[in-house]
Amino acid sequence: MAALRAAGETTRLRILALLADSELTVKDLTTILGQSQPRISRHLKLLADAGLVTRSTEGAWAFYRLADENDGPCPAAQVLAMLDRDDPAVARDRERRTATRRANAEAAASYFAANARVWDHLRTLHVPDTEVEAAICGLAGTSRIRTLLDVGTGTGRVLELLAGRADRAVGVDASAAMLAVARANLDAAGIANVRLAQDDIYTLSQPRDAFDLVVIHQVLHYLDDPARAVAEAGRMVSPGGALLIVDFAPHALEILRAEAQHRRLGIGRGEMEGWLQAANLDAVEVIDLPGRGNELTVTLWFARDRRMISDDLRINEGALA
């Protein structure tokens, strides 16, 4: 009853309708609904207290979304099922949300453009992204992914590739600016089953043993302690689940330390195998993709949680079920 009472007020019902399609900040909602920040914040608090919405922070920003089944029982879906989507106020809110998304996308594009020169140069040194992405999809297999976690999601590209086959997907990154880029890209792609959150790769706030597939794509070479990050990602993997890591093989391009803030010049097979073993994971497939002129080789490691591995596992299919 508390949830129904909370949803019964007109503004709060409009907020629920807006959050049904995407996460939004208080600033987004004040712009869309034309109400003050204190008023919107109070409505959100009442909805959160009633278990209808949840809140996540990214630096100074807070994002709100509808609570889902992983947050406990939530009647928001039943409330929204009775809402007239053609109601003039609701339709107008959708139009304003579209304009807000466009503004957010433009801000994200500006950040991306400011860093594009370095990233474009890096791309010329390794195999085309299309080949790496094809290898990622091949290792992930064709089975349905119940839960997907992308650690260090960056622009959200891995989520764009795999979220369509996932029942639930989460992307985390330490950078609020990169999360803004990912959010804009996912919105543009029409992907709605992804939750984005700011998180620490060394101490993830996600639930342990909860993800069928965890991906770390081109992140470890930025870190002071990649072994610790692999161990933390391993704790996220469900029994029998998989960890997919994409990074560079060892190389001698010192310029990447200065130009692209790389902390490590690639990761060797033996080194990675040791990290995976320490995380109770077994590497079942490793793929090297040499770049142009062999300047940078991209390596993909596909590892399984050993708690439910059977002798007849068909590792080449990368089955996740």
Rank of each mutant, 00 (worst) to 15 (best):
G152I: 02
A169V: 07
V132K: 10
R146E: 14
A169S: 14
L159R: 00
R168V: 03
L148Q: 06
G141E: 10
L161G: 05
A163S: 12
V172I: 15
L161E: 01
T153F: 06
A166F: 02
D150F: 00
T147P: 10
G164W: 10
C137Q: 13
I136V: 15
L139G: 01
R165Y: 07
V151P: 02
V158N: 11
R146H: 14
G152T: 02
E160K: 09
A140N: 10
L161S: 03
A166Q: 06
A140E: 08
L139I: 03
L148M: 06
G156M: 08
A135R: 09
V132S: 12
G154E: 07
G156N: 09
G154A: 10
V132W: 09
E133W: 13
G154I: 00
T155K: 11
R157M: 06
A169E: 01
L159Y: 01
V170I: 13
T142C: 03
T147K: 13
V158T: 15
L162Q: 07
A134N: 11
G164V: 02
G141L: 05
G138S: 14
G154K: 08
G164Y: 04
R157D: 08
G156Q: 04
A163D: 01
R168W: 12
R157S: 12
A169Q: 04
G164L: 06
L149C: 13
G138F: 00
D173S: 01
V170G: 00
T155M: 08
R146A: 15
L139A: 13
A174D: 05
A135Q: 14
G156D: 09
A135K: 08
A135V: 05
D173K: 03
I136G: 11
V151S: 02
I145W: 02
T153Y: 01
A166V: 05
T153P: 04
D173F: 07
A140F: 03
G164P: 06
D167E: 15
I145A: 03
A140C: 12
T155E: 15
G138K: 10
V170K: 01
C137H: 03
E160I: 09
R168I: 00
R157T: 11
G138E: 13
L159F: 02
L162P: 03
R157Y: 04
L148Y: 01
E133T: 07
G138Y: 04
G138P: 00
D173W: 04
D150G: 04
T142P: 00
R146V: 12
G164M: 07
A166S: 13
S143Q: 15
I145C: 13
S143A: 15
A140V: 13
G154N: 06
D167W: 01
D167S: 14
L161A: 09
G152Y: 04
L162R: 05
A174S: 13
A134S: 14
I136L: 14
I145S: 06
I145N: 00
E160L: 12
L139H: 11
T142I: 10
V132C: 09
C137M: 11
T153K: 08
G156F: 09
A163H: 04
L148V: 03
R146I: 00
